[in-house]
Design a protein around this nucleic acid. Structure first.
Lengths: 192, 192
DNA sequence: ACACTAAACTGAACCGGACTCACTTTATGG
DNA sequence: CCATAAAGTGAGTCCGGTTCAGTTTAGTGT
């Protein structure tokens, strides 16, 4: 029932401009960018912002959703190029960089991981699916324990995304990721 | 230079009442408790709240700081009763429960882990110290890898605290903790 | 081309919640 | 028991998200 008629041309343009403006503002570290500011960047009035997004939060959500979509396309490629556990490593590190892309975005990520809005639940499911893909491959190859789901790994990582970018943040996130991987491998050894 | 004269009796009483009221509100899940609400609970006017705390955030910070102080006294006891790696496990699980104590507090915790305010930096240092105590003991006993500091472990856990309480939250947090511990042990085996 | 209409846009006004400050009350010590 | 500095009060300010009555415009039928 996609009764949604295609948006009018200018509407579509403005909507896109708003998303772009918001993303831009977040990446620039203006996590607290005001709605008027975002609207101005997009060259529209606040009212227009609210025509397209129920609320400020909804806009942030949408920006993130796009980000997630992009990210979840990656695992398939990685599995084609690497052993399963290495593919997982690459994906996790990519996740870290993704979160590191800007302080503003990190703030947004944080709220995603923490919120229980259905929108973000979807995002989690999607991400968990992507991780499952990698974990299953690893389990099948006997490289990773088989009893941990993508959802759990995602949660374990959630925190890192929430961390504000500080001195040495990236290095630390990488180390944590390695530890997590070790933990997943250790289980495979015991279970083998 | 603790030039701070002891507070007047009523002042101290009100300050404590405010902290108690805030904690109570947070634990009750009213993460968004308004300042007026908190003030009312404490039986004072808003102005009084602001006499004692620079800002609403500052109040939240103080509540959390107390919580942390309490928590950081624990490791010493645990080490007296358990093997080092078990002591670490207990402490981490306790941390989980601590975060689970209420949705509201979880929200507060999240902002702590994420903020770079000096106040919370202190809290992190303190917590990291507590964890180091346990990690060092474990390393000395050859049970845990020696190259990971408390600070890193803390970061790894940060996310769990940020997670909102949802269906099965606790179980998942526990699993993540176990994986983390496995990762730390795995390193010890390789390094042994 | 042109008019017509529903969709989209605008921005001043509204609202709710954090925060201030001029004034009142009260603890304390001399 | 007074003096006075510390503490408390709460109506009002400020600020940012949100609304909506009025205006503009893309798309369509003629």
């Amino acid at each position: 029932m996609p009764s949604t008629r295609p948006l009018r041309a200018d509407a579509r343009r403005n909507r896109d401009a708003l998303l772009a403006a918001a993303r831009e503002a977040f990446l620039a570290g203006e996590s607290d960018a005001h709605v008027d500011e975002i609207a101005k960047r997009a060259g529209v009035a606040v009212g227009t912002l609210y025509r397209h997004f129920e609320t400020r939060e909804a806009l942030v959500e949408e920006v993130y959703r796009q980000e997630v979509d992009q990210l979840c396309a990656v695992p398939a490629q990685l599995l084609a190029q690497h052993a399963p556990d290495e593919a997982l490593r690459h994906f996790l590190l990519r996740l870290v960089d993704h979160a590191a892309v800007g302080k503003g975005m990190a703030v947004a990520l944080e709220s995603i991981m923490a919120t229980d809005s259905p929108v973000f639940e979807d995002a989690r499911v999607q991400m968990a699916g992507a991780l499952d893909e990698l974990l299953d491959a690893g389990a099948a190859a006997g490289k990773l324990r088989a009893d941990i789901g993508g959802r759990t790994v995602l949660r374990a990582l959630g925190g890192m995304c929430g961390m504000r970018i500080t001195e040495g943040w990236r290095d630390e996130a990488v180390r944590i990721t390695e530890i997590l991987l070790d933990g997943l491998r250790y289980g495979a050894v015991r279970t083998s």
